[in-house]
């Protein structure tokens, strides 16, 4: 049903407009990323990293939680292998997200694929994965991912430069931003089709349980996989 709908719509929209749509979809991510990236910049600075080291990490790695963990491990003088292995384990969840995202793409050129892959984060995947279209434009994805990337980069620099000058109350109030975005992404499809809500509840329930046993990264991977497995067996189609 979606396939018919999408093949007649989104590939007709010109690339420039797709890029614009993507950037627009990225704005809520930017709002959420800025304070987190600033906190990262501040932490990196306090840990004794130079501005170029901290920013380079945000530019090349671009994966929130793992950057915080890596900076922590650096201050504890852990060796490089431990740090890199930890980062690998923390970020392995993107494998699952890219696999899911791959099914919403077709005939995207290698160059664009490599760019899009770089921008896969929990948040950009949450936005892209909940789009109705089954055939996403690479320009939409690039707009979405690189507006978020820009916010992550500029937040890191800001954190180094004006570290800690954001009022505490606002800082912690903004901690809710990305969660509000996740809720805002989830509710509209759930209103249209209750099964999506059930599937999300499966993921949430597994995670509430597994969160206590595993590291957050693995808890997320297993919750997503187990929830989707149960859904695949219980529901014929959505």
């Amino acid at each position: 049903m979606n396939a018919i709908f999408s093949s007649t719509t989104e590939r007709k929209i010109p690339a420039k407009e797709q890029l614009y749509l993507g950037i627009k979809a990225g704005i809520p991510i930017c709002i959420g990323y800025l304070p987190i990236a600033m906190a990262f910049g501040l932490l990196a600075k306090e840990a004794g990293l130079s501005l170029s080291q901290g920013t380079l990490m945000s530019l090349l790695v671009y994966a929130g939680a793992s950057q915080f963990v890596a900076v922590n491990m650096l201050t504890l003088n852990m060796n490089w292998l431990q740090i890199i292995l930890t980062v690998f384990i923390l970020n392995f969840r993107h494998f699952l997200m890219s696999a899911s995202l791959s099914q919403k793409l077709s005939n995207v050129k290698l160059f664009f694929l490599c760019l899009i892959a770089f921008g896969v984060t929990d948040e950009s995947f949450a936005v892209a994965g909940t789009q109705k279209e089954n055939n996403l434009s690479p320009f939409y994805l690039i707009g979405l991912m690189f507006s978020a990337y820009l916010a992550w980069f500029s937040g890191t620099v800001l954190g180094f430069v004006i570290a800690g000058s954001l009022p505490k109350v606002l800082q912690s109030g903004m901690g809710i931003a990305l969660y509000a975005m996740f809720i805002g992404l989830l509710i509209p499809p759930v209103k249209k089709c209750k099964s999506f809500g059930f599937v999300a509840l499966l993921g949430a329930s597994f995670n509430i349980f597994l969160y206590q046993l595993l590291t957050p990264g693995w808890a997320l991977v297993f919750s997503a996989v187990l929830g989707a497995l149960v859904a695949t067996f219980l529901m014929k189609e959505v």
Binding site: V199, A224, A228
Partner: peptide
């Protein structure tokens, strides 16, 4: 996964499984 799965025709159940992933991940992220 993007390099190797993009144009691969996956079996129906696996496609549905991957289609559910955004929603289980959203639930677990929240």
């Amino acid at each position: 996964p993007l390099l190797f799965l993009q144009n691969l025709k996956l079996p129906g159940p696996l496609q549905r499984f991957l289609g559910f992933i955004p929603y289980t991940i959203l639930g677990a992220l929240i």
